Amino acid sequence: MSEHDALLVDLDGTVYRGPDAIEGAVETLEAVRERATVSYVTNNASRGPDEVADHLRRLGLTLDTDAVVTSAQAGAAVVAEHVAAGSKVLVVGTEALAEEIRLVGLEPVRAEDDEPVAVVQGHSPETGWPILAEATLALHRGVVWVACNVDPTLPNERGLLPGNGSMVAALRAASGREPLVAGKPAAPLLEQAIARVGAERPLVVGDRLDTDIAGAHSVDAESLLVLTGVSTPTGLLPAEEGQRPTYLGADLRVLGGDLAATAVADGDTAGFTARHEDGHLVLSGDGDDATAALRALCRVAWASDGWHGVRGDGPAAEKMISALGLSSG
């Protein structure tokens, strides 16, 4: 972390999965806090920052509530930029999102009959047809539409569940409209987090290429992908340029060591090498560091065109490819 003055860390799939902390996350973040500012930046708009902070404290983390930045806060700020003070806003989401609308000087409502001038949409496990119907009616009138985030899935201890993006897709289909997006990968949420701590060299950390890592690119920040949530080696190898992380680690514990060694471009590959041969990525070497092997493969994959498979050069490399969840051939 010597090259960075702030850590902007995702929550779901990065710090915790469901109610429980991911192994090593709490100890690592407590140690990092001694060297850099740590902010918790979540696309999940279902809880207020105080509730999120309480959850993190129960896990053993030390933080002030201001260290939590949510997509509900960013979504409310985006709405406020597009409507007059005191305007009515139809809220598709939790009471925590409605409270953020109040805090920016707007009036949350739940029905089209109230004649809202905007719709704001964030994740809620209670979202159902009635509120989606109200929002659809408002959208057909042409009101402003802001989505706190568009993540199609939400990781928890049981696996991947429908995220806010899945509910946004329902309104998109029903209205033919596209929302303004506040959360990652759009810039507003991360810009708010960076401004709050005055960071000049932030490091964005998360588990999703399409939100956390793409979001880092949107604010020209370096990023660390951890393999504890949504994105997997299968998705990482063909990642487009705007979704490629600067660093790659198995989990947050890589922040406790030499971060530079985990750089995809020039970090440690622990004896593994890769090459492009006959349309395949070919892994060579023998070791037990799966992320080092994956970094070697990424270097070649991202510099190559037209590869269509992965294979190992020898039994040890084949075993590693299997451990990474990549099919040989």
Rank of each mutant, 00 (worst) to 15 (best):
L11I: 15
M320A: 01
T136C: 09
H123R: 01
V68L: 06
A174R: 04
V181P: 02
R141F: 12
L61P: 06
V9G: 01
L154S: 04
M320S: 05
G235K: 05
A187L: 06
E100H: 08
G229Q: 03
R172C: 09
W129V: 12
A36M: 09
G215M: 10
L203G: 01
A316T: 06
G287V: 15
L326H: 03
R275S: 10
D278G: 00
D114W: 12
L190G: 03
L237V: 14
E241Y: 04
L189D: 00
H4C: 10
L139E: 10
D210H: 15
L236G: 00
T211F: 13
E30Y: 05
A6Q: 11
V205L: 08
R275I: 05
T37N: 05
A25K: 01
L259A: 03
V117Q: 05
V52F: 11
V32H: 01
E3P: 00
P155F: 08
A77C: 07
P155K: 05
V230I: 15
D64Q: 09
A31S: 14
D114A: 15
A96H: 12
A214T: 11
L56D: 08
A182V: 15
E23D: 10
T211V: 14
R295K: 09
Q121A: 09
H123P: 00
G314M: 08
L8T: 11
V78N: 08
G183D: 08
T153L: 11
G18C: 08
I213Q: 00
A36S: 09
T232W: 02
A263W: 12
T228R: 11
A250P: 00
V143D: 04
D251W: 10
A292H: 11
A36N: 01
Y40A: 00
T228E: 03
P185Y: 15
P238D: 09
A263Q: 12
D268C: 11
G183P: 13
L225M: 14
G165E: 08
R172T: 13
A36E: 04
L259M: 02
S71M: 12
E126L: 08
G279Y: 04
R295L: 07
A296W: 12
P19H: 10
V89S: 06
V150S: 02
V89N: 03
M1F: 09
A199L: 04
G206S: 05
D64A: 08
H308A: 15
E27T: 10
A74T: 09
R33L: 13
A265D: 15
T127F: 07
S218V: 15
V205M: 12
V254G: 02
A292F: 07
R299N: 06
D64K: 07
A173V: 07
A323D: 06
D251E: 04
A323K: 13
R299V: 12
G314I: 13
A67P: 00
E81M: 06
V92S: 00
H276W: 11
